[in-house]
């Protein structure tokens, strides 16, 4: 397995300013449906990535019916143009649409996203290292069951799974035929449906203006070993540890992830 390096970007401008050393860009949104890009934006980033000889991965979020429709529309139109890439799935309904209903029409490799691998990634488990190490060891493992689920993924053509690198550590052992990506340094923690930023700044307007990108919020508390960072509906924290090692079976990609996008911003 050749180790791969990818980076999450929020805009074509961030792609233009990237330094070398990456094989692939991630573009789109895994969590908040209101932050999904348009078809035009996705298409434009794809061609810009092509120019830099970078692979393209489209992130898709947990969806309402509207989000399913929009995600499918983007994927089908990109596929119609002969564009190939990966699509990270965060919703079981969209996974079903992409890997079964529209499987023949979509030219993107399906990837099981962090929303669906559902690790115990919260930052406080590390506090139990001394008193209950068994809980910490449990939290390191990615709960993928004993076989039936992996068979299902194989049947659906999903061979890549994505995980976080939590503060308490990561222990993933993927069976033959599966590959894993680990996000670094920002770790996903939680998602609400009500957006505190939108509720504060919308002043009665119905449409989200993505103000959360300009208003990152830092949350600290003595019970939290690290500060949390909220971007609108989504909460993350930054793992101050080193880049995760790719020496676990199947793990072959690091995705440099900052919620603001780009490699250096805010880290």
């Amino acid at each position: 397995m050749t180790p791969q390096s990818a980076v999450f970007i929020r805009s074509k401008e961030q792609l233009a300013s990237l330094s070398g050393g990456f094989d692939r860009v991630y573009f789109g949104e895994e969590f908040c449906e209101d932050l999904m890009p348009s078809f035009r934006q996705a298409r434009s980033v794809y061609y810009a990535a092509q120019e830099k000889n970078l692979g393209f991965t489209l992130l898709t979020p947990l969806c309402s019916d509207k989000g399913i429709k929009k995600s499918l529309d983007i994927l089908l139109r990109l596929s119609d143009e002969g564009i190939k890439g990966e699509v990270v799935l965060s919703d079981w309904g969209l996974l079903d649409e992409v890997t079964l209903t529209h499987r023949k029409k979509i030219s993107f490799e399906p990837v099981l996203g962090r929303a669906l691998t559902r690790q115990k990634s919260g930052p406080r488990l590390i506090l139990l290292s001394e008193v209950q190490p068994a809980a910490v060891e449990t939290g390191k493992r990615v709960p993928l069951g004993a076989g039936a689920f992996m068979d299902f993924l194989k049947e659906r053509g999903v061979s890549r799974l994505e995980v976080d690198n939590p503060l308490h550590g990561l222990d993933i052992r993927l069976p033959d035929g599966f590959h894993g990506s680990v996000y670094y340094p920002w770790v996903y923690v939680s998602l609400s449906r009500i957006c505190p930023v939108f509720e504060t700044v919308s002043q009665g307007k119905k449409r989200c203006k993505r103000d959360c990108i300009q208003l990152p919020v830092r949350l600290t508390h003595p019970d939290m070993p690290v500060p949390l960072a909220a971007f609108g509906r989504t909460v993350f924290y930054e793992n101050p540890g080193p880049v995760p090692s790719l020496d676990m079976p199947g793990l072959d990609r690091v995705v440099y992830f900052n919620p603001l996008g780009g490699h250096d911003a805010g880290t």
Partner: peptide, 18 residues
């Protein structure tokens, strides 16, 4: 809960153990 159950990775009950 303010967060979506299936999307929440916060741990609870830590202080009880400690």
């Amino acid at each position: 809960c303010p967060y979506i159950d299936g999307m929440c990775r916060f741990q609870h009950g830590i202080n009880q153990v400690l």
